[in-house]
Design a protein around this nucleic acid. Structure first.
Lengths: 209, 209
DNA sequence: TGACGAAAGTTAGCACCTTTCACATATGTT
DNA sequence: AACATATGTGAAAGGTGCTAACTTTCGTCA
């Protein structure tokens, strides 16, 4: 790459080993999943979009499943980052910080319903991929951390774990129902933030049962 | 074919217009979805299991999606029946009746995780199928009914709707997390019934916020 | 500098799947 | 008995996943 490896046009894609196919494929698949649903994706189409032959992806991924796992992995990174950003936007240990973690989760589902569904609809992926499992734990860890801060208890405390799980299942369900049945959610006149604050308050109330 | 429609062996399947292909296909697909995941199903394989050519299914279903929608429709019928049975197993208007509706929901997810995921993972299906929408409403209606009975309010009451939605999102999320991340649920030592009773109690408490 | 091996792409090809089309066969209605 | 209809079959087109064998490019080390 001394001067220009045949630099022809504006986009730096013309190299015939064109650099970052892997990333471009993941981006293409993410887009396909988002627009055509988790099923309406094909390796061939992704390759077409990246401008390579339909066999090229297999130099970077073993399976079509591995591509999807790549998308999921990348999505989980973003999800976790969003959750952490949500928490850090409010005072440490505050109820708002807890709710903000949930809000980030819901926002993600709304912004990328296809990818969100993919992340949690991957049946065979989960068993085969310890890294995805780890990232899932990481996301849950953000919830646990916020709850622990709020209750002023160590994250490993069983009560913290339990309440964090409750919160998560609530937010998870609300996210799914929001993207699956918008009309129902609209009918119930749910405002996300109110909802999340109410729930957080209820679950983190001093005495358990 | 006067006496017996060619009754040859034990199974009544030998008629070459063999009666209920549609139902048999749905059963086959349900099984495939359950064992090989929502993706690992093919019309061809289902036809093979039903003992017909791979073109036969298209006499009963327009698409492969329509077959899946058939499975979903049938599953929703069973889900609703289970929820209603759960409610009716306890005193009308009791908290237990509410929790039992949720328990039926969770049990369904545990018993048929593949189908459960299919029901709520169908993106394109939902838009195109008003009957599925209606059945979804029907299931939600069971929750609403139980909540209304508990609160002694009409089902159409906004407060009833809102609390029913809250309950549903909780149960929905718990169901998904249960089948997706069993280990996490186990780690949090969640007992379904305790959990559901706790949640129901919290959500149906007299004053809202 | 230039030979070489690994990385990353290509084309060709098989097996399978979806869907359609033309055709065959049972059903039942009049 | 005849005909329309519902339900089956086989063949074929087009797409997809994945592999194999070949080619090009890149970095590296004598």
């Amino acid at each position: 790459m001394s001067n220009d490896p045949a630099a022809p046009s504006v986009t730096p894609k013309a190299a015939y080993h064109h650099g970052d196919l892997r990333a471009q494929l993941i981006a293409a698949v993410r887009d396909l999943v988002e627009t055509h649903g988790p099923d309406g994706f094909s390796v061939a189409e992704a390759a077409r979009r990246a401008g390579v032959s339909s066999a090229a992806p297999y130099k970077h991924f073993k399976d079509r499943h591995e591509i999807l796992r790549g998308v999921v992995s990348e999505a989980m990174d973003r999800l976790r980052a969003a959750m952490e950003a949500g928490a850090e936007a409010h005072a440490y240990g505050s109820l708002e910080a807890v709710a903000a973690v949930g809000q980030a989760y819901v926002d993600f589902a709304k912004d990328e319903p296809g990818v969100f569904r993919l992340v949690f609809g991957l049946t065979e992926g989960h068993e085969n991929a310890p890294d995805l499992l780890a990232k899932g734990e990481g996301c849950f860890g953000v919830v646990v951390h916020a709850v622990a801060a709020r209750l002023d208890l160590p994250p490993a405390d069983p009560d913290v774990q339990r309440r964090a799980y409750m919160l998560w299942s609530f937010v998870h369900g609300h996210s799914f129902l929001t993207i699956d049945m918008k009309h129902k959610v609209a009918a119930a006149e749910i405002d996300d933030w109110d909802y999340l604050m109410t729930i957080s308050h209820a679950i983190l109330a001093p005495t358990g049962s």
